[in-house]
Design a protein around this nucleic acid. Sequence first.
DNA 1: AAGGCGGGGTA
DNA 2: TACCCAGCCTT
Length: 370
Amino acid sequence: MISSELISWYQSGHRKLPWRETRDPYRIWISEVILQQTRIDQGLPYYNRFIALFPDVFMLARARNSKVLKAWQGLGYYSRALNLHKTSKTIVNKYKGVFPEDYHELLKLDGIGPYTAAAVASIAYNKPYAVLDGNVARVISRLFAIRVPVNSATGKKILQQKANELLDGKRPALHNQAMMELGALICKPQAPLCSQCPLQSGCKAFNTGIELQLPVKQRNHVSQTIRIHYLLITDGQKIILSRRNSGGIWKHLFDFPAIELTTDKKLTVQQLQRKLKNYGITTFERSGSAEGLKHILTHRMLLADYSVIKTGKKLSKLRTTSNEKIVSVEDLKKYPVPRLIEKIIELAEIDRITRKRKPKAQSIRQLPVL
DNA sequence: AAGGCGGGGTA
DNA sequence: TACCCAGCCTT
């Protein structure tokens, strides 16, 4: 009943999107992972580039890890790209390149949770599994005036149950996409377009005038500020990159050697000299800098400074750690970096600095200036 | 059950 | 500012 209204509405005017033009489970999967916690407007160009680079699961499985991350650069939540790559290899090696159809089999794959498993199973294989994402949670919580927090365990259980009941078992692919489209276009968080909603008459929230109070969400995360000073250490030809190999933020992406500071303190000469001495740098010139670059993430705010450090020595003569890489400045753009680093590279005009420095080694100023 | 993980758009 | 987005993973 609800589903037929919903599907009619969907068919009369949904957005045309590339992953809706295919039944290829590979492409459906890629689109679903890209769209995890990501708006369609933001994900769409990434999807097109990604499919052009890696048209099938074999191409993806064969690709270098850095190339996959490079394709993901700027999209955030980089573990998605790592899991995507890992799972492509699983598909090739364990499933001979054919995506499993079974929901529970899909769930075993890295980076595939309840939502994505249901999405792939239903959209690619038309299996009767109801998706529950942010859109669907909002639609259902309003439809039935459910006040249980949608991000609590019990809330999810209740919503999933309702989603299962609503599902059109004969047309799960259409039904699921219609639910999400309704949430995105009509049942919006801020200003829902109830007058245009095909489910208006049966919507408990609308009928009682509480649609703006739903859905209920718990938790307000505090964001902490972190100050970090990046060092762009260059001899005029090459520069030091640092590969982030911790389990934390920007895993497996590259940034620059850095000094972490407490929020209200700036870098001191002593800190800089000590850090540089670890590399074996005793004479240098600080040829460029900026401070107070704001980079806002969901759970923290980074306040970034940087200094361009021109060394007297060739970088190849320096002591670097195993996670650090000395790369030529022209190759810098080949490495996957977070947005903040991308911005710093642009701001610091690294290539201009190196061109200027080319002519003669004796022009090096050996004054430590701050 | 709670917290970590990006980046950009919107009000 | 705060919230939201075709969520998942670890602890």
